[in-house]
Amino acid sequence: MPENKTSSGSVKFAKDIFAGTCGGIAVTLIGHPFDTVKVRLQTQPSAKPIYSGAIDCVRKTIQWEGPKGLYKGVASPLAGQMFFRASLFSAFGQAKSWYSVDSNGRPCIPTNLDLYKAGAITGFIAAFTEAPIDFYKSQLQVQVIRSQSDPSYKPKYTTVPQTVRATIEHNGFRGPFQGLATTIVRNTPANSIYLGSFEVLKKRAAESYGCTQQELANDHPFTVLSAAGVGGLLYWMMIFPVDVVKSAIMTDSIVPAERKYTGMISTAQKLYAEGGIGRFYKGFSPCLMRAVPANACMLYTVDKVNALLK
């Protein structure tokens, strides 16, 4: 019997990896242009901004770099999707399993609060794989800002491998974890709301339709898409100011002696000094435009692939 449980657990883990990777690729291809605009608006100089808004950022990006500029740094999230989504969805599946057994070891249905707790656990664990991916992506996304702000500036790296070599050269294998603490602070509550709300909305929808949650993706796809979109929207509305702090830290110099931002609190204070509360909402509009379609597509893809695998 233990061997069967082990085999079943391994199969489930493999399914979580595959479904999560499919969802991750989908969200990257759809959402990356919005993310590029978000990061560039978040990190451009406040004194002499390069972009007047989201539309201007898109226009100048295409003008200076061509359409491919909107996918700057995409190799990092695409290459890392298997690892990141494996940690995200396997952690979420395991966390839900913990809450699916009562204190006597009997199967039970997780409460709504349990689902939010599972999302928080997932966010904490996934931060350790998401932080390096975000770091490399962000470093490449802001190279054009530095070159436009200072004509004498020559980009130090233009590809992910070059960025990896540079960070290891200056900071060893701790390099890609520049901004890890802020990622944890962002991800833990945000994924609680994101994944918890998605699961709660699906549970209520299944009860309303009189079907299982596994049947929703096949029989009621728009419901799953809507639940995922709401979850994504709540994620960003709740945590966006922390994301601005994270972007500032991750796009700072990889050379410790040249860094402007050295910690979460001091970074938040410096950003506030630049523009008050409004400084923490730069890039908010493209982020919201991305939140619903990209997250709806990702979580629906995960649910659909899981349903097909079963």
Rank of each mutant, 00 (worst) to 15 (best):
W98Y: 15
V292E: 02
P77K: 11
F124R: 11
S97L: 10
Y99G: 00
A228R: 04
T159I: 04
A120D: 08
N4I: 02
G80A: 04
Y99A: 08
T251W: 03
G210D: 05
Q148V: 07
D252L: 07
V230G: 01
E274S: 11
I55C: 08
G69M: 06
Y136A: 11
P107W: 05
L308Q: 02
Q162K: 12
Q178F: 04
G231N: 01
F84V: 14
L271H: 03
A268S: 13
F240D: 05
K154E: 12
S192P: 09
L195K: 09
Q141H: 03
I62C: 11
G123C: 10
P67W: 14
F135T: 08
P77R: 07
A75T: 11
S149M: 03
S208G: 00
N191K: 09
G31E: 01
D16Y: 11
T212P: 01
M82D: 01
S147G: 03
Q139W: 08
H220G: 00
F89A: 05
Q143N: 00
V164R: 06
K246V: 03
Y157F: 15
A217M: 03
A181R: 06
I254Y: 14
F280C: 05
V101L: 10
P176H: 12
I133R: 12
P107E: 03
V292L: 06
Q63K: 13
G9Q: 12
P67N: 06
G9F: 08
G232E: 04
G210M: 08
C287Y: 03
S7A: 15
I265W: 10
F280Y: 06
G23M: 07
V160P: 02
G276L: 07
S192M: 11
K117F: 15
S247G: 00
F173H: 11
T43E: 11
K72A: 15
V74C: 12
V27T: 12
K96Q: 13
L271K: 07
T182R: 06
H170L: 13
L78V: 05
E3V: 12
Q143V: 01
V255K: 15
D102W: 11
F34K: 01
K15Q: 15
Y51H: 10
V200C: 09
G24A: 07
A217T: 03
S87C: 15
K156N: 06
R259N: 11
S76E: 04
A181C: 08
Q214R: 14
